[in-house]
Amino acid sequence: MIATQNLTFAYSPSKQFTFPDFDCADRETMLILGKSGKGKTTFLHLMALLLKPTGGNIQINHQEISQLSVAQAADFRAKNVGIVYQKPHFVHALSVMDNLLLANYLGGKNQAKDKAQSLAESLGFAEHLSKKTTQLSQGEQQRVSIARALMNNPSVILADEPTSSLDDDNCLKVIDLLTKQTQEIGASLVVVTHDQRLKEVFEKQVLL
C-alpha cells in the first residue's frame, strides 16, 4: 500500500507544489490526472523517493519513508518500488533479458531468470529476450519496462505517463497488463497521466 499526507515540495521559493492526500491499498489502482506543469512527475518522484519532500508524509507498506537518507532511500526503492517511465529507457548495451535481470542485480536480489521468462511470456515478448532493446518496437519496449518494474516483486508500482506515446489499442493493452500484473503480485498501482483515455478505466482518481 501507499499513502501520502500534506505532501509539499519546492524547486524554488516561487515554484511550490502542494499535493492532495490519497491512499491506495494493495491490489488497488489509483489514477492521478493533471495537465502539464501541475507537478505530476514531481509527485511521482516524491513517491519514488527520487526527490525529498519539503513537508508531509509518505508511507509505503505502513513504513514512513519521507525521512530516509539517500542511501536508505535507494535501497528501499530498489526493493519495494517498481517504476514505469514515460518513455521506455534501457541500458542499451544489454539484451532484454539482461535488462530485466539488472533490476534483480541492482536491487541486491538473486537473478530470477524463470521469473523474467514467465513475465516475458505473459507480457508477450518472450521471443525477444535475447535481442537488444533497441530492436524492439515502442509498444514492446513499454511492455519490457513493465516487466522490469515487476522483477523485484515490489509493493508499489509507479507508472509515469505509461500510455502517452501509444495508440488507443496499445494504450488499453498496456493498462490491462499493468493492472493484471500488479494484482497478481499484490501490489498497489499508481498511474500518473494527462491521458484522458484512462479516465474511464480507473475508479479511484485524484485530480491535480
Binding site: L106, G107, G108
Partner: peptide, 15 residues
C-alpha cells in the same frame, strides 16, 4: 549520452 542510463540504474538501486 548515457546520463539517462546512469540515472536509470541509480533509480534502480545502483550506488
Amino acid at each position: 549520452e548515457r546520463k539517462y542510463e546512469m540515472a536509470l540504474m541509480l533509480s534502480m538501486g545502483a550506488s
